[in-house]
Design a protein around this nucleic acid. Structure first.
Lengths: 188, 188, 188, 188
DNA sequence: AATGAATGAGTTTTCATTCAT
DNA sequence: TATGAATGAAAACTCATTCAT
């Protein structure tokens, strides 16, 4: 019978946090995030028990988005390369469309606030991409390299590419292509 | 900004900061750093005007070390690949020998405390490596890709490689080799 | 101040408050009290306008109980000493039976939340005991001592006795007897 | 070489706390105490690690004062009664002279912030008085009553007496006398 | 009336930086 | 110059109370 806890408000806080993190970093006061979300500072803690909890959930939310964005219109029938390039293009588009999310995720990823449980959960979200990568790797020159290393390499190249695209959005498409091709040479 | 008396003390602070950053992150209190350096908290500020200044200088110091380490025993007469591999091996050894420095540098690199002036200065330190990379790039498939992007890619692959080596030091050598070869496929 | 609907719920809150005060002190959050009472935190404020109001009413309620317990089976025909000892025994039994109430009352008594109006009302509840005490005093060595002081002394000795009984319930009866006898020597 | 930590300042904080506790209770903000002491809020924590620590030390300090005040001009050669009355008079004078200290101590005594270690240390400070009391008890009607109970009774009567003296300072002397005599009847 | 979300003032403690010694 | 006490502005979180439902 009381006001129900609004999922919309939760999302608003998460979005506010994303924006604030980009401009102020992870040390941004919770009060700023609350203000940006248009709520009272105390209310933030109705939705997230601690600041750390907020960050962990945001990390997951963004990873989730990155994972689902990646699979948009996935060409099930295409060959490996086309499938991988498809994902890559999706990522690129997302990064250009939502540079703030990309940047916030980058910050969260290197933060110590994110627990290893959260990180593991985040990786699980990416598992379908991991499988694709596995298939690519197993046929190429990195077939003997540990998968974890290959994933790390892909992530680092993807990050560098997205950063480049965000920095120079005019040639985003070209950078995107350059990035995958470079990675493809590495892997396949 | 008169040079403070004891350059040795300055170094001690920098080293202490490195160690403390690894365990506590960049939000570590200056007092902890001072204690680790064996001096009073107030004294730290005779050597570095602000905490931010300390971090910027540490960044530079570590970049400097990475740059000079890279060029150790540089084989002037060897071919491009051997020259590049040489640098890479030097980096790998350094990362394994001084994982703390590597980790601290990684943290500083993503921090907002580091000003763009500092970053630019940091890149300048790497210029000789940049030139080598430039020569490698200009002959390979990335010849049309902007140099800044190529540098970013190299850095990201190098970081991923060093992280892997630190995490699994038993196979450090193999990871090191896998890393360069992957990068080489990308570039040359 | 319209009487709230359910008097039962009011009692439940009061009882919950008693229990919570014992374990958490007077700074216990109202929410904890509400939860202990099995109601929503907001609901508490339909029954008591403020936390302070709740505490004042609880004080009165407990004083009331102490007063009525004291007069249980009062031996109208007995002599003064027997009458007084009767009351004292009743108190002792109550303290051992309801140590929580005793402890909560002790806390409330020293609290600044309890207004002087409430304290006066509390004393009024004790008036019949006061009268008995008055008769005892007027015949003994304290006949020149102000009544308020005598009451204070009785209360303090009673409190000390009840605390002792609660702490060492095995010899409760003995402590109870020791307490009155001591008091009686003081007064009569 | 830096400003030495001033013992005077420590005392000033303790005194400020005493005054503030009397008017605002134990929930008084530390900032108020600091302001009353004429120092910055943060400075308080140079002298006392936490608010709780401050309270525990204050408790001890006041107990200490009560103990040493009690023994002032102690008549070593006098008989038990005169010795005891002497202590009592000293307490009474102290209570009238420093009603704030008396009140603050009363508040602290019932507070849950005071650890049992602190309480034990406090009791130790009173040990010489305890010994005297022991000798008095062992010869009188309470010789079979546990010492802890006797101490509690003495304390409670002393508290009631001091309160009365503070409330009605004009007849302080009389109240003081009435108090001891009452207690003496109880004990001896 | 009952619920529990919303509010925002208030609290303790931390910490970069300053400054007396 | 070195020291560490002094400063005071945060910052995260709490909680009595209000209010929409």
């Amino acid at each position: 019978m009381p006001r129900p806890r609004s999922d919309d408000k939760r999302k608003r806080i998460l979005n506010a946090a994303t924006r604030v993190i980009v401009t102020q970093g992870l040390s941004a006061p919770t009060m700023g995030i609350a203000k940006e979300a248009g709520i009272a500072n105390g209310s933030l803690f109705t939705y997230f028990e601690t600041k750390s909890e907020l960050f962990n959930q945001l990390y997951l939310e963004l990873k989730q988005e990155m994972a689902s964005v990646a699979m948009k219109d996935f060409p099930t029938e295409a060959d490996l390369q086309e499938q991988f390039f498809h994902i890559w293009r999706n990522w690129g588009n997302w990064a250009v469309r939502s540079p703030e999310k990309r940047k916030a995720l980058a910050q969260l990823t290197v933060s110590e606030e994110i627990t290893s449980e959260t990180r593991i959960a985040g990786h699980r979200l990416m598992s379908s991409i991991g499988e694709l990568l596995e298939r690519i790797r197993s046929a190429g020159p990195m077939r003997k390299v540990p998968m974890s290393f290959v994933i790390a390499l892909m992530n680092s190249v993807a990050d560098a590419t997205m950063d480049q695209m965000i920095q120079d959005p005019k040639h985003a498409k070209t950078h995107c292509k350059n990035g995958v091709e470079a990675l493809w040479r590495m892997l396949a």
